[in-house]
């Protein structure tokens, strides 16, 4: 093929498998953030009246170059993930112009069939979450210096806590299919480890949800105050 460098990269990125690969790699990177963010958040449980998590917050804020690099990287990853998802979905809809009157599913999980519902809902939640805990404009009493207090006061509002819990369940659904699916897309499927990957995706997705949800639940039942 008489194809220059730019040309083969372009045709790879515009191929069906190339676009799926973009979904897989950006999805994996965003999952990395989900794990790191959870580990950071779980510091609210260190019983020192919030000193640890506040120190963690200050540490992040004291390195603007670092945090802005991370934020912009995440934004770029999210942008690529969302744009590619939209492109793939539009093509998928066009591939079946007339649908079935009766359609039964044999193997496709609920999670796999609702990725384009769970995805946009998580996106909307992320916007709300940033306004709630980062910018603070939808928070009842936001204090830029006191991460711990923001969490406690934020989740003492039952609607906010319930929205958070619902979003984390949505995230778990998305990850349950996404984690296994990204391995498959990248060509990682083998009788030696596929059963472990499938079970692992469900376990990890559930663990992520339990980890995050433990925070508002602890506030609601008064363990954290």
């Amino acid at each position: 093929m008489g194809c220059s460098t730019g040309c083969w990269v372009w045709s790879l990125l515009n191929s069906s498998i190339g676009k799926k690969t973009v979904m897989a790699i950006t999805g994996l990177a965003l999952f990395g953030f989900v794990v790191a963010h959870l580990v950071g958040n779980l510091q609210v449980f260190i019983p020192d009246d919030g000193k640890s998590i506040n120190a963690y917050g200050h540490l992040l804020k004291s390195k603007p170059a670092l945090i802005w690099t991370a934020r912009l990287t995440l934004l770029a990853l999210l942008f690529a993930h969302v744009i590619t998802a939209i492109r793939l979905s539009l093509e998928n809809n066009a591939a079946r112009p007339v649908g079935y009157q009766v359609k039964n599913w044999r193997e496709a999980s609920y999670a796999s069939r609702t990725m384009m519902i769970s995805g946009p809902l998580i996106f909307l939640y992320v916007v709300y979450h940033l306004l709630h805990f980062t910018v603070g404009v939808v928070h009842p009493k936001f204090d830029h210096e006191d991460v711990y207090r923001n969490v406690i006061l934020g989740f003492q509002s039952t609607p906010a806590a319930l929205v958070y819990i619902a979003a984390m369940l949505m995230l778990a659904t998305h990850l349950r299919h996404g984690l296994w699916s990204l391995c498959q897309t990248l060509g990682i499927n083998h009788p030696k480890y596929t059963p472990a990957l499938k079970a692992g995706s469900t376990v990890v997705a559930a663990a992520i949800a339990v980890g995050y949800i433990s925070i508002p639940v602890s506030v609601m039942i008064g363990i954290l105050k």
């Binding site: 191929s15 069906s16 093509e91 066009a94 591939a95 193997e107 796999s112 069939r113």
Partner: peptide
């Protein structure tokens, strides 16, 4: 794969209905 894409088939979402 290039021909498959050209024919206008959809993109796999690993739902495993095919198998």
């Amino acid at each position: 794969v290039a021909q498959m894409d050209k024919e206008g088939f959809g993109n796999c979402t690993n739902a495993r209905e095919c198998e």
